[in-house]
Computed example of a mutant assay.
Amino acid sequence: MPTSEAIAARVGREAPYEEALDAFLAAHVPSRGAAGLVQAYRAVQAMPYFSGLDRTPQAALRDGRGACTAKHLVLRDLLRRLGHPADVEIVEGDFASGVPVHPSMPDALMTMIRDEGVTDFHCRVRVGGQALDATWPLDLLRWGFPADTDWDGQGDTKQAIERVVVRSVEEDVLGAKARLLAGLSEEATRRRAEFLALLSNWLADLPWPEEETI
């Protein structure tokens, strides 16, 4: 989990977001240029996935975990501080289609994955012509999740959802996503919420390596 006592302490004191970003960079991104791009991506990717009520990047830095929205807002802002022209792109797709079935999952989650049809508005970062998806940590490879092991800064990373339609690229990511979600049907909203809760609870119970501090 890419957090440190220094970062947690600063965010815990309600430090400005920019200060928390700088603490994260100092702890996990020693390089600049192309190497810094990869290091920032890896550091955010390493955050465990968890879909909670607070989707802000501040919460992701404070808690050391987050869902696609918060993680990619953090990545966007880190890359901008490194001088890369980054934006968050919101795409529409079937979130269940990118999640593998594992026998340790509850039956309800396995059924939803097999049935698919979980409409979501997923976030990723666009840097130039590259699509960076830091949703799944490398630790999830053992459970079959599509995470990169050898991305070196060239081209797209592996994507959490393969087939998507771009819906928004704007600064107010949280507002744009809220508007898109408000347009879902009642049934699609219920199904999405149930799926995210089941997935997050299962992931939270998985064994994670002990946190490394820098």
Rank of each mutant, 00 (worst) to 15 (best):
S4R: 14
G12D: 15
G12A: 07
R13L: 10
A15D: 04
Y17Q: 09
L21G: 14
F24S: 00
L25N: 04
H28D: 12
P30K: 06
R32W: 04
A35G: 14
Q39A: 13
Y41T: 03
V44F: 00
G52Q: 01
G52Y: 03
L53R: 06
T56I: 04
P57Q: 00
L61R: 11
R62Y: 15
G64M: 05
A67S: 05
K71F: 13
H72F: 00
L75G: 00
L79D: 01
L79R: 03
L82Q: 01
G83C: 04
H84N: 03
P85D: 08
V88L: 12
I90P: 13
F95H: 13
S97G: 03
V101K: 05
H102M: 02
P103F: 02
S104G: 07
A108N: 04
L109W: 02
M110L: 08
G117V: 00
G117H: 09
V118I: 02
F121H: 06
R124M: 15
V125R: 00
R126V: 06
V127P: 11
T135D: 13
R142G: 07
G144D: 08
P146S: 11
A147N: 03
G155S: 00
I161S: 00
I161F: 00
I161E: 00
V166N: 05
E171T: 08
L181H: 15
A182R: 06
L184R: 05
E186P: 09
A188K: 14
A188D: 13
R191G: 12
R192K: 05
F195S: 02
A197P: 04
S200A: 12
W202E: 10
L203I: 15
L206G: 06
T213Y: 08
I214P: 08
